[in-house]
Computed example of a mutant assay.
Amino acid sequence: MSLPTNSTAPSALDAEALYAELLQQVKAGLADAHEPAIVGIHSGGAWLAERLAADLGLSARCGVLDVSFYRDDFAKKGLPAEVKPTQIGFDVAGATLLLVDDVLYTGRTTRAAINELFDYGRPAKIMLAALVDRGERQLPVAADFVAAKVAVPAGQALVLKRTEAGQFTLTIENDHA
């Protein structure tokens, strides 16, 4: 899928509207998929994956990855304060997997997630969905489904948050990475 030609201003991002757009793209993209399953990257991608799976009737085939141990900058960054266990309760081998992340940026998280997925088996296909693509890739990674492409100033990050009611918001925060 090609990205929109006009970038969205970060202040104009409506996470719920973006989710609705992403859902429609994913629904069409998975329509004829063989043994579809959804895997979200902790934490924002996992929230999106859980909601996509519920909306698409795939809750039994939804998993969550924490790629902390698979990152190529593990030695530099160390472990986050809260490492979540990876939970994949279905057979990855031969499945069509939708890998979900909240914000696609350098591509390094996606690479780490793919490496971890292959430890669980060899999927027939992996497709990538992201709520937002902020560009500036360091690795050759592109999303199959993306709701918006935005430019974010250096030193800042887009952060997906989820309310107790399950609603999404996107905020811009100083990047402490």
Rank of each mutant, 00 (worst) to 15 (best):
I38R: 02
P4G: 09
A142Y: 04
F69C: 12
K84T: 12
G94N: 12
E164Y: 01
A49D: 01
V159L: 13
V64F: 08
N174S: 13
G78S: 09
Y105P: 02
A33E: 04
A31F: 09
A17G: 12
G45S: 02
D66C: 11
E136A: 00
D55H: 06
P153Y: 00
A31D: 08
D91E: 14
A151I: 05
D144L: 05
A142V: 12
L170H: 04
D133H: 07
L52H: 10
I114A: 14
D72E: 14
A177H: 04
D175A: 08
T110C: 10
R134P: 12
F69G: 04
S11G: 03
P153S: 04
M127E: 03
Q87W: 00
P10Q: 06
V150N: 04
R71V: 07
F69A: 15
A151L: 03
D101N: 05
F118H: 14
V83C: 11
H42L: 05
S11P: 02
G29F: 00
F118C: 04
D32L: 13
H176E: 15
R61F: 08
I126M: 03
P153N: 02
N115F: 11
G107V: 11
G155T: 04
A142C: 09
E82V: 13
P140S: 07
A177M: 05
S11D: 15
L170I: 09
